[in-house]
Design a protein around this nucleic acid. Structure first.
Length: 296
DNA sequence: ACCCAGGTGGCTT
DNA sequence: AAGCCACATGGG
């Protein structure tokens, strides 16, 4: 027997595509429902996943007349309408963001068109913190597997879907703070399990970073296992710091290809992003990242 | 067997 | 400040 769900409908959402949202590397707990490539069946996209302690089945009935638009129907195990509206960032005008980016840097139009339905989710800080520590020197399929393992072993069951499959909430900080490396071994985090345990304990002491962006960054860099790249991801996806511009191997390739930067010149890339994309550089980074991920 | 993946810590110049 | 290298794990 599946658990009951609440339906929440958002009509006429602009600048949204569920494949862009869930495959752009910002989150790791959403999967296409019917195994269709990217969750497509005609003009319907369907994904299921979880945010914090809530399960959600998300369907986008796409408007055939408008690109990256449609009616978003959520079947959720909990969470208010406001919670989900905020999670999907539905109050923000992404059309305007794309227009401004292209005005400053016309070449980026390739990226804003390829990932035109990207929205930066408002995710829980703690979940983002742990997820991106797992991400270092790792690939997306395996990151996904590791995080599922963490949820199934250390999270609470929150929902049984119609196939009888159990979904789990993200582990609490306490549950990971009290875990041992032996407990974590079966998750196959490799050398990262020490990082996870220490991060959980430090988060319980410090809570979420606050202050200016630089202050948040400094605090994040104090975590063992968090360097500049992971700190920028956590700020962008978990702290609503849209001026963060994470530079990973893909972005290095992009910056080399499009603008001729030496792959080692991370400082130069940051300065370029700050100058060209200003306060919107976090969004720019997502469009660029998706463009190159999509090419593979 | 090697190289890579949303890199980082630690040690050596 | 910049340059190495080891670090688990799994896929190509």
């Amino acid at each position: 027997m599946s658990d009951p769900m609440n339906e929440i409908v958002f009509e006429n959402v602009r600048d949204i595509d569920l494949e862009h949202v869930f495959q752009c590397g910002q989150c790791f707990r959403w999967t296409p429902v019917n195994g269709g490539a990217g969750g497509y069946a005609g003009n319907v996209q369907e994904y299921q996943g979880a945010a914090g302690q809530w399960y959600c089945r998300a369907r986008l009935d796409r408007d055939p007349a408008v690109e990256n638009a449609g009616t978003l129907v959520l079947d959720v195990s909990g969470g208010s309408r406001d919670f989900w509206e905020n999670y999907f960032d539905l109050k923000k005008n992404y059309g305007e963001i794309k227009t401004r980016l292209v005005r400053e840097e016309p070449e980026i139009v390739r990226a804003t068109e390829a990932g035109g339905g990207i929205r930066i989710l408002n995710q829980d800080f703690w979940e983002v913190l742990i997820s991106f520590i797992v991400s270092q020197n790792n690939n997306i399929p395996r990151i996904t597997k590791c995080i599922r393992g963490l949820c199934e072993k250390f999270g609470d069951p929150v929902f049984a879907d119609e196939n009888g499959e159990e979904w789990y909430g993200f582990p609490s900080p306490e549950s990971l703070a009290s875990a041992t490396t032996e407990d974590l071994a079966e998750i196959k985090l490799g050398y990262r399990d020490e990082y996870i345990i220490r991060a959980a304990r430090r988060f319980l002491e410090l809570g979420e970073p606050s202050g200016t962006m630089e202050e948040k960054r400094t605090e994040l860099l104090g975590y063992h296992g968090i360097g500049p790249k992971v700190a920028d991801c956590i700020m962008l996806f978990g702290c609503r710091e849209f001026r963060a511009f994470p530079i990973d191997t893909w972005v290095k390739t992009i910056m080399n290809d499009m603008y001729g930067f030496d792959r080692k010149d991370v400082k130069g890339m940051q300065a370029f992003a700050r100058e060209k994309f200003g306060d919107l550089r976090g969004y720019a980074q997502q469009y660029l990242f998706y463009l190159y991920r999509d090419k593979k």
